[in-house]
Design a protein around this nucleic acid. Sequence first.
DNA 1: TGGTTAGTTAGCTGTCAAGTTAACTAAGTT
DNA 2: AACTTAGTTAACTTGACAGCTAACTAACCA
Lengths: 118, 118
Amino acid sequence: MTVVQEQLDSTFAALADPTRRAIVARLARGDATVNELAAPFAMTLPGVSKHLKVLERCGLISRTRHAQFRPCHLERAALDSAASWIEESRRVWTERFDKLDEHLRDLQAKPSQDEATQ
Amino acid sequence: MTVVQEQLDSTFAALADPTRRAIVARLARGDATVNELAAPFAMTLPGVSKHLKVLERCGLISRTRHAQFRPCHLERAALDSAASWIEESRRVWTERFDKLDEHLRDLQAKPSQDEATQ
DNA sequence: TGGTTAGTTAGCTGTCAAGTTAACTAAGTT
DNA sequence: AACTTAGTTAACTTGACAGCTAACTAACCA
C-alpha cells in the first residue's frame, strides 16, 4: 500500500463521519478551540477530542498551543487530495463519453463500408 | 440524520477502501463484470462481491443482468455529491482568505483613526 | 440431464472505530 | 497553595466491517 493510498484511505474515512464533516465545515470559516468545536454537538468532550485526533492524523487539521487552549486549523492539502482523486475519476468517465460522442459524429459524417454493413 | 448526510456518510466510507476506489476507477473507463473487476485483486470473489454491494448501496454503481453476467456500471451522481461537499468547504475556506486579503488592502488604502491607533 | 460458468448468501473470525466515564495534565486565577 | 478552565489519556462496551470458506442460485452448454 502506497503512502498516497493510505492518505486517501484515512482522509475519506475521516470525511465519512458527519460530526467530523461538521467540524471541517466549521473550521473552513476560521480557526476554533476544542470547546468551541464541541459546543454544537450532543457529545462528550473526549468524544470530540478523538474526532480531532482522527482529523489531525490524516492531515485535515493542525493544532497549536496558546496558553491552555489548543486552537484547531483546517489544512487544505488533505481536502485537495481527496477532491483530486474524485475529479480524476470524473474526468475519465466524462472523457469516455466525449470519445463515444465523437465516434458517433464521425460515423454520421463519413460512414465507412465496414461500419455501414454492421 | 438527514438523507443527504447518510448519502455522504456511505459514499465517503465506500471511497475509504482502496479496493473500492480501484473498482470505481476501473468502472470510470467502462462497464465490467464481477469477474473482470475481481481479476486484479488477491481476494476471493465473495470479497469483491461484498465491495460491490457497498458501492451499490451508496449509489456509486448500479448492476443489471445479462445472461449469467451482472455487468457493473458507474453512476456519477454519488461521486458528484461527494465532490460537491468538498468543494463547498474549499470555497468557504478560500473566500475567507480573499476577504482577509481585501480587508488588508482596504487598511492600506485608507487607514481609519480607529485602526491606525491599534 | 448433468456439468460448467458467474455470481451471491451464510456463517465465522479478527480488527477497528465510536462513544462512554473516570482520571489525569497543564496553564491561568485568587 | 488551592481552585478553575481547557483539554487529553485510559479503559471499557458495543457495533460495524473486511476477509475467509462452504454452500447455494441461476443461466448457459453438451
